[in-house]
Design a protein around this nucleic acid. Sequence first.
DNA 1: ACGGAGGTTGGAAGCGCTTCCACTGTTATC
DNA 2: GATAACAGTGGAAGCGCTTCCAACCTCCGT
Lengths: 354, 354
Amino acid sequence: MSITIYDVARKAGVGIATVSRAFNDSSLIREETKKRILEIADELNYQPHGLARGLARKQTHTIATVVPFFFNYFFLNLLKNVQYSLSKKNYDMFLYSVDNLEHKENMFDKVLYERKCDGVMLFSLTLDEEYAEKFIKSNVPVIIVDNYHSSLDSITISNKRGAKDAVNHLISLGHKKIAMINGNLSSFPAKVRLEGFKEALMENNIIKNPRYIINADLDLGEDGFNEMAGYRAMKQLASLGKNRPTAIFISSDIQAIGALRAAKEEGISVPDDCAIVGFDDIDFAKYVGLSTMRQPVHTMAELAVNRLLRRIDNKTRDKFQVELSAELIIRESCGARNVTTHLGDISSNDAIFL
Amino acid sequence: MSITIYDVARKAGVGIATVSRAFNDSSLIREETKKRILEIADELNYQPHGLARGLARKQTHTIATVVPFFFNYFFLNLLKNVQYSLSKKNYDMFLYSVDNLEHKENMFDKVLYERKCDGVMLFSLTLDEEYAEKFIKSNVPVIIVDNYHSSLDSITISNKRGAKDAVNHLISLGHKKIAMINGNLSSFPAKVRLEGFKEALMENNIIKNPRYIINADLDLGEDGFNEMAGYRAMKQLASLGKNRPTAIFISSDIQAIGALRAAKEEGISVPDDCAIVGFDDIDFAKYVGLSTMRQPVHTMAELAVNRLLRRIDNKTRDKFQVELSAELIIRESCGARNVTTHLGDISSNDAIFL
DNA sequence: ACGGAGGTTGGAAGCGCTTCCACTGTTATC
DNA sequence: GATAACAGTGGAAGCGCTTCCAACCTCCGT
């Protein structure tokens, strides 16, 4: 039916081993023979069969990425970059998304034992001990991106430090009544960013007000890093009236977008009545003038890919747990850039407010 | 090293054929034997080897999706939905993205001849004759989503009709000076939406003004469906001064976001000075009150998956070229919902303006 | 008691490749 | 000129599965 290595070998008058060598950059073949075989293969439109190759070599040149089912713009960016790094190395990429824990189980079993991939990249997923154990025992290389487990490779951004930097920036602008709008505490980044927030206040001798900390409820869906969660949280803060905070650190840009919407409805001017700093630097952040902590997505992706491939090639066995830092991007919403801008004013810059 | 079908067979005291049957819902096995084998397999932590299976069966239970490298929110949604439909059918999904034509070539050769997948789903990609030919000859099932080729399965939304509906809506609101901000004409949807725009004007006896049609330049990157392209186009329209259009149909929401930003800078109030209708209904559209044509992404994805799988299972051979229709979603930016709203006012609704 | 039908089962071939091993010819070494 | 070393090459085994085919066991009708 379809063309195999035998067809090529026959037509070239060589053995199949030689054809195989021609296709694998082997040094055990004369340059001339190789060239001729490659030409004939081209004529025949021959391409080695991926599965057969994988089976014989015991590796697939494929990695699996697993993202939460509610993946958003942050993941999109990450995925784009991972895919790019991977394609440069000629690796293929499976994309799986897990919606609930039950599926997660199937997923892992699949990835681990079905042998369709050489390694796994987990995005933002929290691994419980049972599965961490499984990964380690299975010997399948894994790397966790945007989350952490003590006995596996991981690459995170410094959420605590990032949160602190954001809050310190607000403090440096003179704010004392500072709130935090956060994702659900079941999420790893949410938890750590909250710590950073608290630390920054503490170190600056600002007493924290429990009403100024709003963690998204689970009933808001997903991990609380969504627009509606931000909107609701802002409404809640607005209801404090005179006791409203004058600045808010918001744990994700997408929530910040929701918060801005609520602020607008409530007649709260940003940044004058309330300064805002977000987290992530999604594309939209610049369109709405949102100051935010930028995650170095490109670097994360590249590092993760390189590391995983090295692990697959067995070039290394030591632990790899990197923390990159987030960068403060100052736009309008924090009030540092253009203190006279009002909500509804025409912004002088490359960005505007909601 | 790892557990194979032989290990299970030995431990169960049966032949490997029987084990295979147990794992493949064969009717040629006694229920009791099957149960026992499955139990033993479970004990042994055995899972059939995916590649070996694929090789023997000559199918991989995997499909490849190919997206443009600049994939944006529209694709994110599509991808999410495709992935979801696929996982319900227990299919795996490769994700490839092509950045330039050269890579596209590699890509196709890979997908077509390497046999790592059973079918291909192409997103928004325009297929030239050479490759269309290749696909047809290769016999690999393909479906094109959001683009069209006369001799391949495809599923599109009715771009022309959608554009017409959008423009007709603006006309019904009393507008006569109507502009269009479009993507680059090399993009299939851009081309067809422009046709729809022209037709709507014609049918309403509105003479079209060439200065009111702005197609994105290629130097704006990608296919022109991006924020900056919208921003620039709006600036250009604003420069017409008194001759400005009073309404604009914008070919994608992401451009509309850019246009709104420019409008704000220019002091143009939306919808009072200028009504706007976008296209896509990306998540952000509702946050900024953008009226738009909604693409039925979930349906597209489900239909595409089902069709492709049927093709793979050889259940059908007839051509499948479906056109779904886009739905007009009325929010504030077109002025139909709340004619007294001004830019900067507090919106009474679940949405606000940029 | 016997032939056959039908339900179950095991063996072996084959999917298309890589790679170990044995073999051939060529060149370098003394 | 004999020997060693080595670059090239082909054959065959093996990767872990599915599936064809033959074999076996029951059970039935006769």
